[in-house]
Design a protein around this nucleic acid. Structure first.
Lengths: 125, 125
DNA sequence: CAGTATCCGGTTTGATACTG
DNA sequence: CAGTATCAAACCGGATACTG
């Protein structure tokens, strides 16, 4: 039941390569699941509201149908989202964030805030 | 001095597309700077300690020299890191996180923690 | 040491057309 | 609507050799 890595305060590990390597490994893990051009955007979308395939296609600017469906499959495999087929006419499919995927919301919020600050710093100067 | 976006609590924005779109934009901003296969890993490394080019080449597993130097340039342009040439013999170059880039540390920590939890859930079950 | 230049092959992607 | 199939083009990314 040992931890894979324990992050310590900067001052404590200033020269510690082991900590760095361990963090890199953890970062690697998360990037495997959420890396790439689109996954974080899709999860962000679904954090706010469940969406249908066609809605996502419009919301996630620039993504193509092929790529969207592939990314959705990946995310579903990792249990971040669920796919629900609704028996309407014609059929409709809803993608929603899982309880688990929802634990990612805090991270998204932090990232979004950072993005806003950065824009102010670089562009809004 | 208006905010670009204000994230609200889930319950408040369950059906709010505007919020979603605004967050997507912010996420986009941050991904432009830190997206791709390597940038987050490099910044993570430098958050712990300044590093020389050759050290990074070893620490960031799998990266090639060409790609590393390109990524370092990008990060420098965005003021996340600084490059310092040391007048040794032979010459050595040190890359360090900037005060600004350091604001990213909290995010890295959150990501690393999430990565660890995910591994436990999926693999360590 | 700290890169840059070149070549080159694999992956990813976008368009388009198609299916149930 | 919600995808899948196909194909060519674009985009990396690695290996190697080279420079100051």
């Amino acid at each position: 039941m040992s931890k894979l890595v324990t992050l310590r305060k900067p001052a404590e590990c200033a020269t510690d390569n082991t900590m760095c390597t361990a963090s890199l490994k953890a970062i690697q893990d998360i990037m495997d699941i959420l890396g790439g051009k689109w996954k974080i955007a899709i999860v962000t979308c679904l954090c706010y509201n469940p969406r249908r395939y066609s809605e996502l296609l419009k919301l996630v600017d620039g993504i193509s149908g092929k790529v969207l469906s592939r990314e959705l499959k990946d995310l579903e495999m990792n249990k971040l989202i669920v796919r629900t087929v609704k028996d309407t006419q014609p059929i409709s499919v809803e993608y929603a964030i899982t309880e688990y995927g929802n634990t990612f919301k805090e991270l998204i919020q932090t990232m979004a805030e950072w993005g806003i600050k950065h824009r102010k710093k670089i562009i809004g100067k």
